[in-house]
Amino acid sequence: MSDGRQLYQEVIMDHNKKPRNYGVLADANRRAEGHNPLCGDHISLSLRLDDDLIREIAFQGETCAICKASASMMTANVKGKSVADAETLIQEFRDMATGKLDTATQSHHLGRLNVFAGVRELPTRVKCAVLPWHTLHAAFHEESSATTESGEF
């Protein structure tokens, strides 16, 4: 089975049907919107930061399965972590998705997120996987919106 199909079967079975942290936080102190103009994907993130700690995080949106699963796993992963640790994950996730980080041979902190390495086989879908992470980065930096078209990939 190709990594691409495996990616689908593993992440969609679970996170697409039962996304974690789906919704909007009423008491959020950070929010950001993410857009992928190419496919119309749209997600909104809301976070509650306590100093440097991500206390709560939720996402909502109209997206493809890859984006939704990525957002679901991202929120589950960064909840309770420091902003600095989350930034490390953002960087590593981007690098993995774009092929700069080979999770099989190089050290990383991605854990189960490693399943998204398969998205490299689907170059047209890399942006779908990265959009939630991009949006999280924007939320940390108090930018209200992120897009997959800013050339940062």
Partner: peptide, 11 residues
Amino acid sequence: HPHDAGTLLDM
């Protein structure tokens, strides 16, 4: 989502 359908059909 149509993009998921497109990717899976491509496979």
